[in-house]
Amino acid sequence: MLELRLVQGSLLKKVIESLKDLVNDANFDCSSTGFSLQAMDSSHVALMSLLLRSDGFEHYRCDHGNFPMGMKLENLSKILKCAGNDDIITIKADGPGNDTVTFMFESPSQEKIADYEMKLMDIDSEHLGIPEAEFHAIVRMPSSEFARICKDLSSIGDTVVISVTKEGIKFSTKGDIGTANVVCRQNTTVDKPEDATIIEMQQPVSLTFALRYMNSFTKATPLSNTVTISLSSDLPVVVEYKIAEMGYIRFYLAPKIEE
């Protein structure tokens, strides 16, 4: 028996919207830690890792140890679009061997209750171990600013060079029509803490990434006012959006490497 009641159902809607363009189908894992997912895009260039901790749910029951539920994200997105933004979402499944999952949507005043049953699928997914890394630079900035920069640069070029120095974090691209550079300096003198740009640098770092993926990651912007970008030479970048009081969604993107 699995029963997860999420009062802020819109969080789940936003999470799936941020993943569905990159991930076709994935196993959601339910364990005592929480509701989680790890999946790669079909080219194995990006890895997505989601955790919604069990204590963030109003009710969290998961009796079967680690219980993977294979879902096609496009179908899950269709179903979650039927939930109102203020609805409470309950996820129910009988356990291993059962091939359906039920989503129940309750309006805040309880005047409308809907349930949608979705078929589960068997998915062979490879779980990757993500080693603890010492990052050369960790930058926290407003998520809307990061989204704006990725969108702006993709009208000029296909790749972005992200460099962190004492001066700040620089995003550069070039394309047929010209070049673009955007520098964000550390800025902690802001009225609201979420507007700050905070740069922790152990050593300067510069890496090249495909902008198409970065732009996809920014679909998670509605989940958090801030984004954290962690960089180390010749390692995947980690773009993390915290999910209020519940967990996170992390996007890992393999760099482009000079041959």
């Binding site: 790669m40 990006a46 890895l47 990757l128 171990g129 890992y252 393999a254 490497i257 000079e258 041959e259």
Partner: peptide, 14 residues
């Protein structure tokens, strides 16, 4: 020329 690397060359199954 920059070549796109894959996540699987950094993280291994486990």
């Amino acid at each position: 020329v920059n070549k796109q690397s894959q996540i699987t060359s950094f993280f291994s199954p486990g």
